[in-house]
Amino acid sequence: MKLHTWSWLSWLIAGLIIVSTTRNPLYLLLLILVLFIIQSILAKKESHLPISTIKFSISVLFLSSVLNAFISRFGETILFKIPGHIPLISGSVTLEAILFGAINGLVLIAMFTLFTIINAVIPVQDMVRLIPHALHPIAVVTTIALTFIPAMQQQFRTIQDAQAMRGQRLHKLSDWLPLFIPLLIGSLERAMQIAEAMTARGYSVQPIKKQFPMQKFILPALLLFIISGWLVILILNKSVLGWLLIGSGIALLFSLFFTSGRRFPKTRFHEETWKIPSIFFLFTCLGITIFFLIPFPGKETLAYNPYPLITTPTISISVLLAILLLLIPTLLNKRETHDSD
């Protein structure tokens, strides 16, 4: 069963909330482990963890640790000293600085893996369909841009091979010119071909219907409402009136989307339906998000600072269980069944 795109996005948000609310290395390690398991199970082509992810993770962990070790001078466990007066470099290299860098690396790895998984499980079209109808031109341009990238990669390989046949070797910057020019020109030609093909198939950024006369006033009006609401709260300290004004502005924004969408009379071939697993998945992710955002027993274990002296990070069972709940899509989601896969 394919899970709803909004469910996956709530999963992404839950993951990002965890990453941004904790610096506890044990939680981060558990989160990365969970993500690696999900990636291994849900990745479309490989049934194992892609080598590129492992290589990337090791590189990031190494670089962030080394970099922080050389630029941070905090910490009490001195490993060695770099002599001299070189700015940022000279001074004590501490174990705490290395650990702090490694924690930052873990955060980066977790974020990268979260987006890699989302990229693998949500088709481009499903993602683009989330863009409001009023922004249809943006949706189509996004689709094209996304489908353009694999085509450009393919073209780059073709050009690289063709130039290698002429004895082209890539030693210095100017050696890239024979690859860059055909790629640039080829990409422009392809962009033109796609534009022609889309137009020939009825796509137009021009709206079919004329703009509703009052529509041009909606955008300035909604901005006025939101800014004045914010100022009322800030200066006059009248929060009820302020929120009323901001709410009116947001309502106008939705009405603008609605009326603009009606100017582009288009239909959608796919409309995702909500099924019980997707709803269950969505609420689980919302639960995880709320759990990490509100105060709860054991929340203090989320924070961790290796400075000035490394201590053992404390852990809470409830936090560990909340992180493990991110594994839920592996139980609900099956691989997509496009026969090309």
Binding site: V124, T147, Q193, A197, A200, R201, G202, T267, F269, H338
Partner: peptide, 30 residues
Amino acid sequence: FVFQEPENQFVVNIVEDEIAFSMENAAIPR
């Protein structure tokens, strides 16, 4: 219209979506 290099003018990446593209633009009911 079928262009000289059709693989270069596909807009989306699944066959049925590609076929549906022009119908979506023409606001044909699902």
